[in-house]
Design a protein around this nucleic acid. Structure first.
Lengths: 246, 246
DNA sequence: CGCGGTCTTGAACTGTGTCAATTGCTGTGG
DNA sequence: CCACAGCAATTGACACAGTTCAAGACCGCG
């Protein structure tokens, strides 16, 4: 997943420095942050944080993908967030975690000790401002997802998920979001099901259906080719503009 | 809904001054806010803001209830937020609205002209800090709701909605959330359906079922009595603690 | 080669949606 | 005061999307 992730130079060479909570910080502020931060690696499948745990740190995903998950007593689980590089984990001012955070792929986190980070939030507006922006974006994403969960059919749900992942991937590679798109699914069928509020059987069936109908092509289980992104968007039931008026 | 809402004294007598975006502001800051604010009333059923509209203002719900709604081209709609008194409407830094905002009851809003409000956000940290807190709370609520939409049965969904409304109402009346609870539903069956990702027929059926099973009592369509709040929580499928570890 | 994942496919079942008829409530006008 | 219109809600019958349970395929790995 991460080719060569060089963290020895500190923030200078950090791959997420333009998008993370620290994106707005000046040199002084980065200095302060440097004093309270440390890196941690997690393997795919590992749980970074258990719901109910005391939070020792907050932090940013540097590389890899993690998921925020909620579980009911009887075992039903719902993924409530997909954490990509630069996304923020944890809530300043809250002592205990409310969700499980699980590494979907290998993950590297840039962690800040919680207490000093909270102090910094009050004293330096740049961190708080950036965090507000990021939180507003996540809120929008969550609400977007509520429409998917509440009103879309299984086929539309799958198409929605694929177009989100495809879009993210394209923007990462600086490609346009038109025509042919190729990417690897970072999620198992079960994780997809948990995200979409479906069973893994239904996910599998709908993936097969989309393949049969030529909306996607599959090599192996994870490698996806989308011949026409417009077609995929259409299947997702989104407006053609893809929420561009946002 | 609003007995006597006296707004002539400005912020002094404002019923939401402890919980709104302005809750942390000192006298000076309130002064500044006063210069950019105005009140607006809306009638039940009226649309305050259309998705895609240019946002002239952001602001707080002073009294009444509004809903945030998203609609697909074919008419399927999903409510993505319930706006109660003190809740914030609009997103600083965004020019166009992304959701419809509809008055569910008569509503009074305290509006701030957007541009000057945005300037203020940068200059006075108190507004931004409070907004961050509120946004984080809303994000949590949205994620909570994703579990409801994605994994709960129709019956559990109804019970979840009733317990949320009941809880809010109890805390407003400063009652405890145990044993007998009585409140009025501020939503039509259709609005409930839009919130829960169900049809209004299913909502109606499940309301009848909960009534038949003694979980709730109904007088007319809107007046609800919950003999045992614990029983209701149980039907909602939530842990007994009701998310107290948050 | 066989073993343990992950994924696919099938068949039967079921919860929720759909369509349609009916009830009940509220306010209006005769 | 009753009749009636108009709307919200209830109820029923049936259809169907998605779940459940179960069998098997695929694939990498010892």
């Amino acid at each position: 997943m991460n080719e060569t992730l060089d963290l020895t130079n500190g923030c200078e060479s950090c791959p997420i420095k333009h998008r993370a909570v620290c994106a707005r910080c000046d040199a002084d502020e980065l200095e302060t942050l440097d004093g309270i931060k440390y890196y941690r690696s997690f393997e795919a499948g590992q749980t970074l944080i258990w719901s109910g745990d005391r939070m020792e740190f907050v932090g940013s995903v540097v590389s890899g993908i993690a998921s925020l998950t909620q579980t009911m007593e009887d075992g039903r689980t719902q993924m409530v967030g997909l954490l990509l590089p630069s996304d923020f984990v944890g809530r300043p001012g809250r002592e205990f975690a409310t969700y499980d955070v699980v590494a979907t792929t290998d993950v590297v986190m840039c962690c800040f000790r919680r207490k000093p980070f909270e102090t910094m939030m009050v004293e330096t507006p740049h961190v708080a401002q950036r965090l507000l922006e990021m939180t507003l974006d996540e809120l929008d994403a969550a609400r977007e997802w509520m429409l998917v969960l509440g009103r879309k059919t299984a086929r539309e749900k799958i198409a929605s998920l694929l177009s989100i992942i495809g879009r993210r991937d394209a923007s990462l590679k600086l490609e346009g979001m038109v025509g042919r798109i190729v990417f690897d699914l970072p999620l198992t069928r079960e994780a997809m099901a948990d995200y979409l509020g479906l069973t893994l059987e239904t996910v599998s069936r709908q993936m097969s259906a989309l393949k049969r109908d030529g909306v996607i092509e599959l090599e192996g289980k994870r490698h996806v080719t989308v011949p026409s992104f417009e077609r995929l968007m259409d299947e997702a039931g989104d407006d053609a503009d893809g929420g561009m008026m946002a």
